[in-house]
Design a protein around this nucleic acid. Sequence first.
DNA 1: AATGAATGAGGGTTCATTCAT
DNA 2: TATGAATGAACCCTCATTCAT
Lengths: 214, 214, 214, 214
Amino acid sequence: MWNEAIPDRSTQQALKRKAILRAAATIFSRQGSHGATLEDVAASLGVSKAALYRYVLNKNDLILACQEEALEIADRALTRGEDEGTDALEKIRIGLTLYLVAMMEEMGVPALILEENALHGDEAERTYEKRDAYEIRMRRLVAEGQADGSIVAVEPKVAVFMLLGSIHWVAKWYRPEGAWSPEDVAEGIVGLATRALDTRPAAALPAMPDTTTH
Amino acid sequence: MWNEAIPDRSTQQALKRKAILRAAATIFSRQGSHGATLEDVAASLGVSKAALYRYVLNKNDLILACQEEALEIADRALTRGEDEGTDALEKIRIGLTLYLVAMMEEMGVPALILEENALHGDEAERTYEKRDAYEIRMRRLVAEGQADGSIVAVEPKVAVFMLLGSIHWVAKWYRPEGAWSPEDVAEGIVGLATRALDTRPAAALPAMPDTTTH
Amino acid sequence: MWNEAIPDRSTQQALKRKAILRAAATIFSRQGSHGATLEDVAASLGVSKAALYRYVLNKNDLILACQEEALEIADRALTRGEDEGTDALEKIRIGLTLYLVAMMEEMGVPALILEENALHGDEAERTYEKRDAYEIRMRRLVAEGQADGSIVAVEPKVAVFMLLGSIHWVAKWYRPEGAWSPEDVAEGIVGLATRALDTRPAAALPAMPDTTTH
Amino acid sequence: MWNEAIPDRSTQQALKRKAILRAAATIFSRQGSHGATLEDVAASLGVSKAALYRYVLNKNDLILACQEEALEIADRALTRGEDEGTDALEKIRIGLTLYLVAMMEEMGVPALILEENALHGDEAERTYEKRDAYEIRMRRLVAEGQADGSIVAVEPKVAVFMLLGSIHWVAKWYRPEGAWSPEDVAEGIVGLATRALDTRPAAALPAMPDTTTH
DNA sequence: AATGAATGAGGGTTCATTCAT
DNA sequence: TATGAATGAACCCTCATTCAT
């Protein structure tokens, strides 16, 4: 009854692992996976480098786990987009917006940009496949939008690359300390990027809090 | 490996340095500056690692030079855009398109993406300033476009981040062996990205050669 | 009075320490003291690594204790050999045979082979001295055998090294799961090794159970 | 013509690799492969740890190479024994003696004793097979000797284990600074060990230079 | 001008050891 | 008493950099 709040051991473990992923994602995202040391990650959590190894197999495993987490968030977000959107463009808009917000909340970073040779090992193959699957899913939505009249005629691949570029780039410039909330940023950037595909683009776009520091 | 014509000594030097920058840019862009070794760069040129040190001070200098080169190309491209475009949106469109094409031709990569801590040293400060100056220049153009009626009302910062994200992301997916020429890619992606800002967006966009491998 | 059967605390302690030594000896003998981790030892006992520290000072102490145990077994065996053997060769034969059997039974390994730098600390000196003392005792027996006519003329040192090599090597090849019992092995290998010294060597040697797996 | 004596680059490389193997074998033999660090090996050659990596893939490769070298020496020695010996016992005697001498001369150690888990990787499997092949070859010779009447009736496996134990153990006690030359040691220990198998054992054995330090 | 060789510094990983529970 | 968690030291390995040739 009253020990509901006391998490058992395995929950503790999971929480700590989650915290490590979060810290790692932030650092990987900024410095690149090769430029980030486990020492960096550990220091940002106030623990020793060796302590990480109770929660993570090795650096590669950590990178992989971050990427997997991001992909799952992306997938879940897109699924909700498909459920809630009325046309394909709206599905994409919702999917990407939720992705950015969820990443910020759960991982502390808007997106995870990895170098080409960041992942290796058998597990990595499967992760790359998931990433490809996500892109294909997006392309299908673009094609769907062209069928339902919500999206203009463009090569779907280019459309998706353009969207993902805009989205992922947020990791390069967004600072949580700034004046914009995660929602501001997500709606602002996704609203703008999807306008490129919109067959009936609005004249005005969501306003964002003014700031001189950004 | 690097026998061109036989110009005088200092021209030779300059040519070889240029070749090194090109090779380095490609590799840095793919693997990140920390994930790429000088051995990688040297190997891609068919020379020994030690040979690089005749043309480059050290790894940091090499990274810096790549970044400087890219910024100069971006600046030159934008200047031509400003000269040739009739309204601000067109200036941007031309500036970005020329940037992508020139990068491909001169550096072998559509863009150079660097990690946050890739540059260090005194020289690096100045380079960061140049990069900021370029972004500010872009933002001014967006504001100009909002004044001249070619660009919709959006926070200029967001507009520029969205454009640069789309543009830089090309480095992640473009493969020169593919069916799309540098011009195809540049026009395709810039055309789409700038449509997001367009007050009078076209219904159709430039078609691209069909391909199943992309 | 009535708690005779219930071993008191210190007996319990001693029993567990003995079990740890046994487990450790087996693992050290196979993997070398440096190649074996305390984790390995603990796992083979089904306890946690930290638990070992209740019974053992540290890894060095554990190694030392194993070696001491082995030396005591060797000494006791040789003493029985001297008591029971009629000539020096027989004393040696009995001493070595009993050693192998006792090691198997008490320590789980036929012999403990340690690397040169396995032991360190002050205690280690005394252990090395005991080991030397055992070798000297063996050499004296060889000399005694040359006097009583049971052992051929050889440099006693070489004779002892040859005997101990044969004996210790058993640790490298003997597998308790195999077809040979500890007694088979001990009599077989000691019988053969001592035949090298025998002035009246038998034409035949003790037969061993046939096996194709060894 | 006159630069015959100047070894070309690849010969230099081979020489240095050989020197590394020699140094490593000595240290591995004394401290065990796990107890020896590459720092130890490098220091004994007066070079830096990193320098080793120009000649060796990694530590495992180094261990493997040492073992391979020892096995080749053993094989060559046994082949010469088979060529030169008149009966099987003499073949073994020659083969083992040459092995010990050659190991001392070429590797600086009389034998290489490795822990059970010293080798790993795909290559290791093949090395273990070679080692097994050598033992089988020895057992066949024992059987041959029982057929030609030179060797007494014993289980060949036990005979070979006893011989190899005596031989390998030399690594534990032989010191090149001592009064015994490699030949003294080899003939002394092999002479004694093979006497155990001899159907017509000599009454006396080769004398060895007297020494009180051994 | 170019290269092979060598090195020091740094990062990933393991492990003996300690400590709070 | 026993364990999970944490750590510092040590080791393997890589790589930017230098140097002799």
